[in-house]
Design a protein around this nucleic acid. Structure first.
Ligand SMILES: [Mn+2]
Ligand SMILES: [Mn+2]
Ligand SMILES: [Mn+2]
Ligand SMILES: [Mn+2]
Lengths: 226, 226
DNA sequence: AAAATTATTTAGGCATTCCTAATTTTTTGC
DNA sequence: GCAAAAAATTAGGAATGCCTAAATAATTTT
């Protein structure tokens, strides 16, 4: 299959994967801003990824890109590395969850399959990374998920925090200070349709008001029952 | 100081360091063969390393290269990463000593100083890597050493195995099968001046004959006393 | 000491990946 | 539906790090 994909290509594929997770296409500008490169650079790379053999993306001029099956497998491989590494850094090396992203971003491209297997085993084949993101299996299958944004809950609904959208350190520290970490129980007391502000109660803490800047960063799974 | 050195530059510096460890200059061809590139590529890189600010090597046309103080510091930084990583892979992830080199060679360029510190601490600030090579300190000082080649011992001399010259998997497995691992006690029963063959006894094993292909790979420290 | 061999350097190029500036296409707002 | 704005593409170029082939320098042989 694919001899070896460059770090740059792996980053493009990973980013296309996450941008198309909800079904659309990844636009040139979205990719450019996520990857920190100029839009012109993205166009050039997409053209290349679409014309190599086998093609890794399907690229429609002015429309955007999606992954082929080969591209998706490569993306899942990198994503598995990234998320296993983040978990390993937290569990075995004592990193905090807001410090692992950059380190994993560099390591993900250079670890061997042997390394991947060893840390997966040592961690007991975890299903999620420290931010709650699902880790693709060793056979490169992304486990199913049915989490929804905290901001989509109606007043009175309860849920369990599953994952954070962002890997940004400042955002993560803010969420943590609110108790919004994977596994936490949260109840929406009020969801104001006007401004999108929520009043929530996390675990048995005092109720707090949060705005969409927060509630759009947190994915939850609604709790069964009445 | 140096913003960021590329992987390629780090490899050049590391290789120049080891080639000049015994005082000479690193030649173009020696570098080319160690790095697996064409001699012309080495010349180009040496010219560049000598003319950047601050210069990392001193390069004399047709003579070879040595490291400047800045180049040496950069080399020791990479070497510390490499050797700490090898130690970590063996101690914490169960790698065998003949499998760590390639993994460390890729990881050494991307780990952060934070990562370095964490594994150093977890390992108890080891002095040597799995092959017995000395690990530069966190202040980038290479500890002193007075080991000599096993092949230089005279008949009747005893010594402790300190380090292996090679990181090659096949060589390491051969040495291990002879019991020639760091810490092992070895006595030279006969050192034939003619062909360089030795008869040695490792620990309490049966004496065996080894040729220079083996005895030139092992550094030892001669034992005090009569 | 000249010739032959070996080592090194120079010259010219190629692949990657990024950039800016100019142009074209698509979308938006009236 | 058309003009303005936004998004995307093309064109041309720079930096890295490698290559081969040709030229030159150093070393070894005879
Ligand atoms: Mn993998
Ligand atoms: Mn994560
Ligand atoms: Mn370091
Ligand atoms: Mn080693």
């Amino acid at each position: 299959m694919n001899e070896h994909l460059t770090t740059s290509i792996q980053d493009y594929l990973k980013t296309i994967y996450t941008l198309t997770a909800d079904g659309g296409e990844a636009s040139t500008s979205a990719l450019a801003s996520r990857l920190g490169v100029a839009p012109a650079s993205v166009t050039g790379m997409l053209q290349k990824l679409a014309s190599i053999e086998p093609p890794l993306v399907i690229y429609r001029k002015h429309q955007g890109a999606t992954l082929t099956r080969a591209g998706e497998r490569a993306a899942l491989e990198v994503l598995r590395h990234h998320r296993l590494l983040e978990t390993y850094l937290v569990e075995s090396l004592g990193y905090s969850w807001d410090a692992v992203h950059e380190e994993a971003c560099r390591l993900e491209h250079v670890i061997s399959e042997d390394f991947e297997q060893r840390i997966a085993e040592q961690l007991g084949h975890p299903e999620r990374d420290p931010h709650g993101s699902l880790i693709p299996t060793s056979t490169l299958v992304m486990p199913p998920s049915n989490d929804v944004l905290l901001s989509s809950l109606r007043g009175g609904e309860s849920a369990v925090v599953r994952r954070m959208r962002s890997e940004d350190a400042i955002t993560l520290r803010r969420l943590e200070s609110l108790g919004l970490v994977p596994g936490a129980e949260v109840t929406v007391l009020v969801n104001s349709q006007f401004d999108g502000n929520l009043t929530i109660q996390v675990a048995s803490r005092q109720p707090v008001a949060i705005d969409p800047a927060v509630s759009d960063q947190v994915f939850v799974e609604t709790t069964e029952g009445t």
